[in-house]
């Protein structure tokens, strides 16, 4: 049994490493258009991974989570305008997002279910309004710019492609380690039954706030890179709830509560909506809406979730059979 599991584990690792290597060299073979699409996919997979940690694993749907994306983007822009290099600006932006998540987390994570989701929407709206009105610092409602990178667009796009790819890979690895650790069992117990989790010795408040801070960390880095990539950001763009609704759809399609789910979901949704955009742009929104409803109805556990369910059920069937033949 142990060796079999080990073999499977090794095979999976080899597959993942192979996939990463392919994606590292992929930009040499595709056009700038596709490089941009892939960069967006990696970014969405990262955000979806964070939503998945909060919702898929812990049961708290952070609908206004895009606030950390916006904070990451704006803090990076402000710090870089002050002359800081990007490798200092983004980590500092990320730090500020973590601080905000901890300060907001203690009161707001006391709310459960609907109330938590709505309170985060309210907070996002409030932060967006502050950014819109603090014109001297943020540039106000009309947005702000990043310093321009002195290089050819081709090189720049590849640079952001690789940045988002590494962000996605690192995020996914960290999530994998987190959910399979002792702390991760705490997270999952909170979704399963928060009161029981508390009475079993899990510090639920600490676990929830820390988890939100982890989710804020990666979302804010994605925001920082996104802003630098776009070189121009506006409040109603980087605080747009569409980022979160898209990420939720990706999580559901890929499979909530699985690590590969958000990645697959991001690939599927971005590809579908790209086709919808280019193919029949006028019906693009409706197509997305109908696709979402169809998926929620027919593959509620998502692609990866459905597959792992099948595997588990087969294992149980096999163990039942073995029991029968043994007895």
């Amino acid at each position: 049994m142990v060796t079999q599991d080990d073999n499977k584990f090794n095979k999976n690792i080899i597959l993942i490493i192979a996939a990463v290597i392919i994606f590292i060299f992929l930009p040499n073979f595709i056009s700038g258009y596709y490089i941009r699409i892939f960069t967006a996919i990696f970014m969405y997979a990262t955000i979806s991974q964070c939503i998945n940690l909060m919702s898929g694993y812990m049961g708290y749907l952070p609908f206004g989570h895009v606030m950390f994306f916006g904070i990451g983007a704006y803090m990076s822009a402000i710090l870089m305008k002050l002359g800081l290099p990007v490798f200092i600006a983004i980590p500092m932006a990320c730090l500020s997002a973590i601080i905000v998540s901890i300060i907001l987390g203690f009161p707001v994570l006391r709310l459960r279910g609907h109330y938590f989701a709505i309170a985060t929407i309210g907070m996002n709206g409030a932060i967006m309004t502050v950014v819109q009105n603090a014109t001297e610092i943020t540039g106000g409602a009309r947005g702000t710019t990043f310093p321009i990178i002195m290089a050819s667009p081709d090189v720049v796009y590849r640079y952001f492609y690789l940045a988002m790819l590494s962000l996605m890979v690192i995020t996914s690895l960290v999530m994998h380690v987190v959910v399979n650790s002792k702390f991760g069992y705490g997270i999952r117990s909170i979704k399963a039954n928060e009161d029981a989790a508390n009475s079993m010795g899990i510090n639920t408040t600490f676990t929830k706030v820390t988890t939100w801070a982890i989710a804020a960390l990666f979302t804010s880095i994605a925001g920082g890179i996104y802003g630098y990539w776009m070189s121009f950001i506006a409040p109603d763009e980087v605080f747009d709830l569409m980022f979160i609704t898209n990420s939720i759809i990706m999580m559901l399609i890929g499979g909530a509560g699985t690590i590969l789910g958000p990645i697959f979901g991001a690939f599927i949704v971005e590809t579908v909506s790209e086709v919808a955009w280019s193919g029949f742009m006028q019906y693009h929104l409706a197509a997305l809406g109908i696709a979402t409803i169809v998926i929620v109805f027919f593959v509620p556990r998502g692609v990866i979730g459905t597959i792992t369910d099948k595997i588990r059920n087969r294992r149980i069937e096999l163990s039942k059979k073995a029991e029968v033949t043994n007895g």
Partner: peptide, 26 residues
Amino acid sequence: LLKGGIVFTLIVTFAIRLIVENIILL
């Protein structure tokens, strides 16, 4: 979808909104 919880009903109502928005735009 009620059994699926808040994530499902939120996403489905959002999808309905997209469809209606598209119809209005058209």
